[in-house]
Amino acid sequence: MQATSAEPLARDTEHRSRADARHDFIFRILLRCCALLVLATLLGAALSTLWGGREVLFKDGLHFLFSADWNPVEDQYGALAPIVGTLVTSLIALVLAVPVSFGIALFLTEIAPGWMRGPVATAIELLAGIPSIIYGMWGLFVFVPFMAGIEPWLNDTLGNIPVIGAVFQGPPLGLGLLTAGIVLAVMILPFISSVMREVFQTVPARLKESSYALGSTTWEVVWDIVLPYTRSAVIGGIFLGLGRALGETMAVTFVLGNSYNITASLLMPGTSISSSIANEFNEAVGLHRSALIALGFLLFVVTFIVLLIARLMLRQLARKEGR
Rank of each mutant, 00 (worst) to 15 (best):
G139K: 00
F254G: 11
T49R: 12
P99L: 05
L177T: 14
L80A: 09
D224L: 11
R315E: 13
V234I: 15
I161W: 03
L31Q: 08
F146Q: 10
I83W: 02
S5F: 04
M1C: 00
F300P: 10
W115H: 09
A79V: 14
D75W: 08
G85W: 05
S272P: 05
A121L: 11
P131C: 12
L214D: 08
D20A: 14
A166K: 11
A310H: 01
E14Q: 12
S232K: 06
P82H: 06
D60V: 02
G322T: 04
C34A: 11
L177K: 15
S290I: 07
A46F: 06
H23D: 12
I164F: 13
P113Q: 08
D75A: 10
A318I: 01
I164P: 04
L287V: 09
A97V: 01
R289V: 00
A21I: 10
K320M: 11
A93G: 15
Q169R: 15
L96R: 00
G237K: 00
P99I: 05
D60Q: 14
A291T: 07
S5H: 09
R323Y: 14
W223L: 08
I262G: 00
A318T: 13
G215N: 03
H63W: 12
I225S: 04
I26C: 06
G118F: 15
L317F: 10
A245H: 03
I111Y: 14
E220G: 03
V183N: 03
D12P: 00
I235S: 06
D24C: 05
L175I: 15
T89W: 02
L295W: 02
I235N: 10
A264Q: 14
Y135I: 01
G236D: 11
P131H: 07
R197W: 00
F141C: 06
G118K: 09
V38N: 07
G296D: 03
I26Q: 13
H23Y: 08
R311K: 10
G181E: 10
F239H: 04
N155K: 05
T271F: 09
P119D: 11
I134F: 11
R54F: 10
T109G: 05
G215R: 01
F191I: 15
L307A: 06
L140W: 11
S101W: 02
V203G: 05
P119M: 08
D24W: 10
G170C: 10
L47I: 12
A3H: 03
E151F: 15
A245F: 04
E209P: 09
V144Y: 04
N282Y: 13
S272L: 08
T249S: 12
R16H: 08
F297G: 14
W138H: 07
D224C: 05
E220Y: 01
R18T: 09
F300D: 07
P172N: 13
G61F: 12
L207H: 11
I92K: 07
F27R: 15
L214F: 11
A205K: 06
A166Q: 13
M250F: 15
T202H: 09
L87H: 09
L240R: 06
D20R: 15
L30W: 14
V84H: 05
D75S: 13
I164S: 10
